[in-house]
Structure formats: C-alpha cells, structure tokens
Amino acid sequence: MLKKILPTRFMRSLDFLQVDRLNEIRLRANCPTIVYYGGKYFLGENGLADSSKDALNVTSQELNDIVFRACECSIYAHNEELKQGFVTLQNGIRIGICGEIVTDKGTIKTIKNFSSLNIRIPREVKNCSLTALPYLHNENGIFNTLVVAPPGAGKTTFIRDLSAQLSDKFIAKNLLIIDERNEISATCNGRTSLYVGKYSDIYSSCSKEFGIINGIRTMTPDIIVLDELANKSDIEALYNAVGCGVKVIATTHSKDYNELQSKPFFRELLKMAIFERFVVLSNAKGPGTLDNIWDENNTCLYCR
C-alpha cells in the first residue's frame, strides 16, 4: 500500500529496509525524512542514512501528491477525515496531516498546502493482550477497562488483540468496535484487513457518539470497544453506554496512571467510576510493554 502512495525515490529507498520493522515515516516539506525503524533514523537514497545531509527531502508538491493518492485520488471522499487531520489507508496505515486549515465561520472546511505527514504503520501483535486478559474479566463478565499509554506505546494494537480474544472467547457476547479512525480493524469494502475477532461488529470511520448511540439501538452490544477518548462528548457518550448496561473498553493518552489521575478532564471521569480496570502500557521494553493493571480502588493488580 505504501508503494501506491509514496514517490518512487522513497519506495526505492524503503526497498532496502524490512517493512515489518518500520513503525513510522515522518515527512516534512523540504526537510530530511525520518523513519522509526527500531529507533529514529534518517531515510537516505539507499535505506537508512547516517546524517541529515544524506537524507531524502520531500517537496511540498510530493506531499500534496501523497495525500491525493492516499485519498484514492478523491479528496472529497476523505474530507471528513482530512478535517480531523488524518487519512487512513485500506490496510490501517494512518497518515497524520499538517497544513493550512481552511475555516468558514469557525468551522473547519478542509486542510490544504500540506506541510508535514506522519505515516504510521499498524502492527498486528497476536496474543499481546493475553497477560492482561485474566485481570479484565471474572465469572460475572468483562470489566469496563481503560487502556492508558503514551502515544506510540501500542494502545491500538493492544485493544485490537483484546477485541479478537474477547470476541473469540466470549462468543455469547456481542462485541461492537467503534473504529473512528479505521485503525483498529482497517475495514475496507466491508472487510477487515486486521484481525479483530470472528464475531465482532464494526462501525468504521464514524464518531464515537454516533457509534455508541446507534450501536446500542441497532446492534445490541454487550461490549463496546473504542479508541482514544479525548473530549467531553466522548465521555458523555460513554456514560450513556455504561448506563445501558454495556461494558466498555477504551484507550486514552497518558504517560501513566498517576498522570491520568492528575488530568482535570479524567478526574471527572474517574469520579463517575465508569472504569473498573486500568491497563497501563509503556515503551519500556518496546511498544506494548504491560506496566501495570489497576482496579477502581487504586489497587495494583499486576505490576511489571
């Protein structure tokens, strides 16, 4: 998929690398290209480069072309994503986009003149949630769980695998994934590119609010899985879901459990006592390192 969107000279360079080790490509207009390849490196003509002088520089036109191709040559069809600063490719590769924001009466219309892109390549790490799984359910069912981790620490990978484990293990439970950025399942034409379980229902590319309200009405889920809680409306929608007796598994950005508790926004959420388990991931031993699991009473159930 990368081949379809990147300029030829970049693809020639990536041919020197093992694509399955590649996590991220950072492209900035007229600046050296950086790749995350088990560490931070410059991307040169023949794979990794030693210095910024040897690195490939991307032009503004090339950035525009990459976004155009990532949007399947149809910007209008991906404008809702663009407005939120990203485009997701068919296989779950997410391109974060910076550029000039076009607004009209305070509402964002689109982004133009792209200045930098962050291409993130998703990983499917099978069974990565197995260590945590026994702590996340009991004989009465699943606990409402919040996965806490800093960016790039494997939150999405974790809940993807957790969804698959829960879906395959608890067949009697209906599991609904609300995949706002289409990163969890990478659904295209009704088919998932990344495994999220045989019995999972997926709302892709829709807001959490819409997914929760309509999902409860129409799909009668027992468990709802969603990524990246970020604002008040997400929490309100979540509160409605829990009020309907639905179990929720969500993720959020935070360095650790203590930092989460210090955020005013989450302090309210913690007061609501929605979540019964907190899974903390970090980059300590590579992305997806399970640091600890807390319960709602601040008791540490698991510690690395």
């Binding site: 149809s74 910007i75 209008y76 689109t110």
Partner: peptide, 9 residues
C-alpha cells in the same frame, strides 16, 4: 477533479 473537498468540487 478529485483534488478538492466536496463543496469546491
């Protein structure tokens, strides 16, 4: 064609 958002298109 395809290079604009739906309004501009």
């Amino acid at each position: 064609l395809g290079r604009q958002d739906s309004t501009a298109q």
